[in-house]
Amino acid sequence: MASKKLIRAGVSLELCERLKRHHVESCKDLLSLTPLEVMWMVGLNYQEALLLLKSVSGRIAPLMTTALELWRRNAELYFSTSLPAVDKLLRGGLLCGTITEVTGPSGCGKSQLCMMLSVLATLPKSMGGLDKAVIYIDTESAFSAERLVEIARNRFPEYFSSKERLLQMAGRVHLFRELTCQDVLNRLEKLEENIISNRAGLVILDSVASVIRKEFDISLPGNLWNRNIMLGQEASTLKYLAHGFHIPVVLTNQITTHMRHRGSAPSGEKDSEIVTAALGNTWSHAVTTRLIVQYADRHQKQIVIAKSPMAPFAVLNYTIQKEGICLSGGDNQHTLCEGTDPSLQPIRVQTEFDDNLTQSSLSADWSLL
């Protein structure tokens, strides 16, 4: 909260401009000053400087609430995914004010889900949307405006029957392509202003792992430490934005191979490799909700709720159609028996169910976009 811009802490625009000349822009910057320094910078008397510091301090102090108040505000706590069975398990949808991670192998529809959520966020509240804009940070050049429009047309054909509404929806999805770790961090640090100026209600980072894994070879000395520092900065900023604006933040993650040592494998099996979420156990604790998308068979994929503060450990089958993610089997789901640790949950990839499955056999599948 200390990173909040002064204008959002009730400081007048005139005082903000005066302080900005001295490189004081956030609440943290101001509260690190003495009353005498504030007097000199903005031309206030001693009592006015004290009052300013006290006011800003009070604005960023964590507010006390009760479980009863949260319960009464239940409808405002969630962002619907438009997938009834997923929303039911998550007690309403994606939890606002927190980070939701979607991880899984390439081709399972992570970016498809992000584009679908982008469409949903722009919808009127009467249709389950947020009636807000979207900040979409693309690090893999996976975003497709054509696919965004196709999802909108096919998922909500009546609402998006007019070209005007389609153009309005597309104009509310603000895309930033950042291809290095420093670019991503710089963008996140500026995101507060972007959210305010664009009236954004959803932030998407697709993906958090892409640039990190390219730039940090953790086999080299010191790189693991530096990578974790970078990830910590990104997680801290995203958590602040989610909490400060009470909006859902969605990010995608990649997969990696993890060696499961003897004794940790079921029934005392020999050492074996499993595919699991990338970026390690520390990063796993930074996200509130983790959804795993994986292969079920040649035709279907699965959403696994691997980590959630309120949902059971569950799996649902889905396919990817012109309208985006479509669940199979209605509200049916079952809990998984193996691997309750979200940081080491095994993830199914193509070769596990059909060694002959090739990329060309899925060429017509929208999941490859």
Rank of each mutant, 00 (worst) to 15 (best):
R155D: 01
R8T: 06
T34V: 04
I135W: 04
P346F: 04
N74F: 01
Y46H: 14
V102N: 01
D365Q: 08
G330H: 09
L68R: 15
L53H: 14
A277C: 10
K307Q: 10
N74D: 04
A49S: 15
V134Y: 03
F176A: 12
V173D: 00
T282E: 10
N74R: 15
A85D: 05
E48I: 00
I255N: 07
L95Y: 02
L77R: 15
P266Y: 05
A75H: 12
N154S: 13
S144L: 02
I325Q: 07
G128M: 05
Y295M: 07
K20I: 03
W40V: 10
I229P: 07
A49P: 15
Q47D: 07
R260I: 09
L188V: 09
E234L: 14
C27T: 05
S343A: 14
S343T: 02
G107Y: 01
E164Q: 15
L166R: 13
L83Q: 02
I7E: 03
R262L: 00
G171V: 06
L63G: 05
V208S: 12
E14M: 13
I303G: 01
I7L: 11
N186K: 12
L231Y: 05
T34F: 08
F176C: 08
G92F: 06
A145V: 14
L31E: 02
L44Q: 04
M115C: 07
E25W: 02
T288F: 00
C337P: 06
K28L: 07
S3M: 08
L238E: 04
H23K: 14
M230G: 04
K54S: 12
L68W: 13
L33H: 12
K239R: 14
Y295D: 03
E25L: 12
A306T: 06
T351R: 15
F353M: 03
M259Q: 06
R18G: 02
Y159T: 09
K54Q: 13
L185P: 14
F156E: 00
A277M: 13
T256S: 13
D297W: 12
R153T: 00
M127I: 01
E215C: 06
R177G: 04
T98C: 08
S26R: 14
L185A: 10
L205S: 01
L362G: 07
S363F: 07
S361T: 11
D183C: 13
L188A: 07
A278P: 14
R91V: 00
L238Q: 10
F143P: 15
L90Y: 10
R8S: 11
S210Q: 01
S161P: 00
R91N: 10
D183N: 14
T358F: 02
K20F: 03
K190R: 13
R147H: 11
A209H: 08
L316W: 05
W366A: 01
Y159G: 06
L224I: 12
R290N: 04
T351I: 08
I151T: 09
K270N: 10
G268W: 01
T257S: 13
K5Q: 05
L327R: 15
L50T: 03
I292Q: 05
R177M: 09
Y295R: 15
M310R: 15
L123W: 04
F143M: 12
M1I: 02
S55L: 08
H299I: 05
S284C: 14
L36C: 00
A277N: 11
R290K: 14
I305A: 07
D131S: 15
N317H: 11
R147I: 05
V119C: 00
L166E: 05
E158P: 04
